[in-house]
């Protein structure tokens, strides 16, 4: 039980670090770029609290679902649970939408990439080795998603008579 409490305390603190970094990024963005980011207001803080709450609720829900004897629910990623909780709450109430929109979107992305960059530091050499192949694959991956969607849209529009 105690190790569980410790685990969740750790998760809660890391999530707090995450929203703290978002706030820092938004402030820095305002300092350097002025109007590029939404101003920080009381609503921004409510927004960060909302994001933290949805994220933590998603973590808890994901752990609960790991005990449900349905494989599909067990394997469903925690990020999926977080988006589901977010969508349901935003459909039911207007407040979380307003609060979350007071948090600048791009300010959420910079800290994530900072962490991603540090986390791969020990694998950079391998990354260099693989990337020319992935570079070729990337072109076909991008073409694949766009061409796939375009073919289906074309078909759908034709059936819809547009």
């Amino acid at each position: 039980m105690e190790t569980n409490m410790n685990k969740y305390l750790k998760y809660a603190l890391v999530l707090l670090l995450s929203v703290g970094l978002i706030l820092f990024t938004q402030q820095v963005k305002i300092w350097f770029n002025g109007e590029a980011a939404a101003p920080i207001s009381a609503m921004t803080f409510y927004g960060l609290i909302t994001l933290w709450t949805f994220a933590f609720a998603g973590v808890l829900l994901s752990d609960v679902m790991k005990k449900v004897p349905v494989r599909f629910l067990q394997e469903f990623p925690v990020l999926g649970w977080v988006s589901i909780i977010s969508l349901v709450c935003c459909l039911l109430f207007e407040f979380p939408i307003k609060a979350i929109q007071a948090v600048d979107f791009l300010s959420i992305t910079t800290p994530v990439l900072t962490f991603a960059g540090i986390s791969v530091a020990n694998r950079l050499v391998d990354l260099r080795r693989t990337s020319w192949r992935v570079g070729i694959v990337a072109i076909f991956v991008f073409l694949g998603t766009y061409l796939g969607s375009a073919l289906l849209s074309e078909l759908g529009l034709a059936i819809a008579g547009k």
């Binding site: 995450s18 977080v82 977010s86 935003c90 991603a116």
Partner: peptide, 22 residues
């Protein structure tokens, strides 16, 4: 950084509902 990257990302996921719902 590697182990907790997913947690750093969760607030990003928590945002999508607010973009879609309205």
């Amino acid at each position: 950084a590697g182990k907790y990257l997913i947690f750093i990302m969760l607030p990003l996921m928590a945002r999508y509902g607010a973009d879609v719902a309205p």
